[in-house]
C-alpha cells in the first residue's frame, strides 16, 4: 500500500489539508485533488515546463516536487494568478499578440514570465528568450510570446518611473 502523509498548505490563498500518497507529485495533487487543471503534465521529467507553478513565490516544476514537499508551502497556480488579477496585463498581451495557439504551455509560460516581470529589471529580447528557455512551446515559434512579455515589461517599467 502507498505510504501516505497529511499535509496542510495554502493554495491560491486558501488553506487546504489533505492526506496524500507520498509518491504523488505536486502536479497530480493540484489536478486530481484540487481540480486545478491549469497545471499541465507535459513530460513528467522536468524538461518541458508545462507544470510550472509557484511554490513560496518561486516558479517550480510541479512534476519534480512531491506534494508532501509542499506541506506548509504557499502554492499558486494560474487559476490563482487569474483570480487575483496579478498578471491581467500579461494575459491581455498574450491574447492580443496571439502568443499561444494550443495553449498547453501557456500556464507554465505565464508563471515563468511573471517571475521575470516581478524582478522589474529591463531585459533585452535575448534576455527574455533566455529566461523563458525552460518552457517548451511547440506552436508559436516563441516570437509572439517574447513580444507579449516585452510589451508587458515595458509598460510596467514605464508605470513605475516617477512622473516628472
Amino acid at each position: 500500500m502507498d505510504d501516505v502523509f497529511d499535509i496542510t498548505l495554502t493554495v491560491n490563498g486558501r488553506r487546504v489539508s489533505r492526506r496524500v500518497p507520498v509518491r504523488q507529485h505536486l502536479t497530480d495533487f493540484l489536478r486530481e485533488e484540487l481540480g486545478l487543471t491549469s497545471c499541465h503534465v507535459g513530460c513528467e521529467h522536468g524538461v518541458c515546463g508545462a507544470c510550472t507553478v509557484r511554490v513560496d513565490g518561486a516558479a517550480t516544476r510541479g512534476c519534480l516536487t512531491l506534494a508532501v514537499q509542499a506541506d506548509g508551502a504557499v502554492v499558486e497556480t494560474l487559476e490563482g494568478l487569474s483570480e487575483s488579477g496579478e498578471i491581467v496585463d500579461l494575459q491581455a498581451a498574450f491574447v492580443d499578440r496571439n502568443a499561444l495557439q494550443c495553449g498547453y504551455c501557456t500556464p507554465g509560460m505565464l508563471i515563468t514570465a511573471a517571475e521575470m516581470l516581478d524582478a522589474k529589471q529591463p531585459m533585452s529580447r535575448a534576455d527574455i528568450r533566455t529566461f523563458l528557455s525552460g518552457n517548451y512551446c511547440r506552436c508559436t515559434g516563441y516570437q509572439a510570446i517574447v513580444d507579449a512579455v516585452e510589451t508587458t515589461l515595458t509598460a510596467r517599467l514605464a508605470e513605475q518611473e516617477p512622473s516628472a
Binding site: R31, S38, E79, F94, V95, G103, L110
Partner: peptide
Amino acid sequence: ERRTKAKRLVTGRGRYTDD
C-alpha cells in the same frame, strides 16, 4: 481578430482530454 479561445486558455480554463 483575437481568438476567443485564447482568452479562456490564458486564464487556465482550458479543458484538455485529461481534464
